[in-house]
């Protein structure tokens, strides 16, 4: 009986040493160590027939054989794994095939632009507020110091609704809304769609986007506006950009200023993009007019503030070299994908 065990062990060890695949190894393991019908369990079944004195010795021998066989099979497995890894490591793969992007979505470039502006304002302590696009004449005009019959209304040719409401021609309508609904100090930006009766062409759309920034507190001054606008332009267009403040006229600010940023195409020397001036218009700004503060219940002797109106579409056009505002609203998939 013991000889049979020795033979079995020798045969298995010899076979194991030659095995090269996991499947063959598994077959051998089942053949020898399988619970039912395995060679070793058959050998164990002979145990019952042995005289009691031999039983212990035989049992010990079976276990020894089993351990030896298991060790041989494990060694074979380790050898096969090593070969597999070596074989795998010997391969090279073409990493230059394009990556798989089964789904490609993204945010519209106008939202990306807005987000960038919002990041800047928030870093300076400002909060974002949204408001209605259908607006009353009061918030759109009267509250911001543009009374009825005032010629300044011409600059914003406005859509009206049958009930006398209008489509806001500027986000400045949010100034008094924000001032009235929050206690001072106020530091907000109000982005949104605005509407004007313009024919659609490369630089005009009857719907476009503005961002109104407003900071009202004790002691806010024109120098703060200058510092803020200069930093914003650098944030949006690069550290080398300069800003210029040009006196202008808006009913709701005094003093009023157009903010220009130096042209990035020609570095301010003058080119086609900036129409030879070296400067690009960024938006209108100024110190909140005392009448606007009064309309909001603020005492202009105690409080002062600045307002800054930016064109989201315009910023995006300048930053991304887009020359036709209609591009934003056509949503050509090839356009959307470029900015996804």
């Amino acid at each position: 009986m013991s000889d049979q065990l020795a033979e079995l062990e020798a045969a298995v060890l010899e076979r194991a040493a030659k095995i090269t695949t996991r499947a063959d190894l598994e077959m051998l393991r089942t053949e020898v160590l399988g619970r039912k019908g395995g060679a070793l369990s058959r050998a164990m079944s002979g145990l019952a027939k042995l005289p009691p004195a031999e039983k212990a010795e035989y049992g010990r021998r079976v276990n020894e054989t089993k351990r030896a066989i298991e060790a041989a099979l494990d060694a074979a497995l380790a050898r096969i794994e090593k070969t597999e890894i070596q074989g795998d490591l010997a391969r090279t793969y073409d990493t230059t095939f394009p990556g798989n992007t089964p789904r490609s979505g993204g945010l519209h470039v106008l939202r990306q632009t807005l987000d960038d502006v919002v990041d800047f304002f928030r870093s300076r302590g400002f909060a974002v507020v949204l408001g209605p696009e259908v607006e009353t004449e009061y918030y759109a005009f009267e509250a911001v110091n543009i009374p009825a019959d005032h010629p300044a209304r011409d600059n914003m040719d406005t859509f009206y609704l049958p009930n006398g409401s209008l489509l806001r021609p500027h986000t400045s309508s949010m100034q008094v809304r924000a001032l009235k609904s929050n206690p001072p100090p106020i530091a907000i930006l109000a982005p949104g769609r605005v509407y004007r009766r313009d024919a659609l062409d490369a630089s005009h759309s009857f719907m476009f986007h503005q961002i109104e920034g407003l900071h009202v507190d004790r002691g806010v001054n024109f120098g703060h506006l200058k510092g803020f606008a200069a930093d914003l332009c650098r944030h949006l267009f690069g550290a080398d950009r300069r800003t210029r403040f040009r006196p202008s006229y808006f009913q709701f600010t005094e003093p009023s200023a157009e903010v220009d940023v130096s042209c990035g195409v020609c570095a301010g020397r003058g080119c086609q993009t900036c129409k030879g001036t070296g400067w690009l218009e960024m938006g209108g700004s100024g110190m909140v007019h005392p009448n606007v503060l009064r309309a909001s219940g603020y005492d202009p002797e105690g409080f002062s503030g600045w307002a800054f109106g930016l064109g989201t579409d315009r910023i995006a056009m300048l930053r991304h070299d887009i020359h036709d505002i209609r591009t934003f609203f056509e949503n050509d998939p090839r356009f959307l994908e470029q900015f996804a």
């Binding site: 979505g105 993204g106 945010l107 519209h108 939202r111 859509f159 009857f206 934003f328 949503n331 959307l336």
Partner: peptide, 10 residues
């Protein structure tokens, strides 16, 4: 995987 669009509101 959705691409954001901005269309004219009129």
């Amino acid at each position: 995987g959705y691409a954001e669009c901005v269309t004219i509101a009129l």
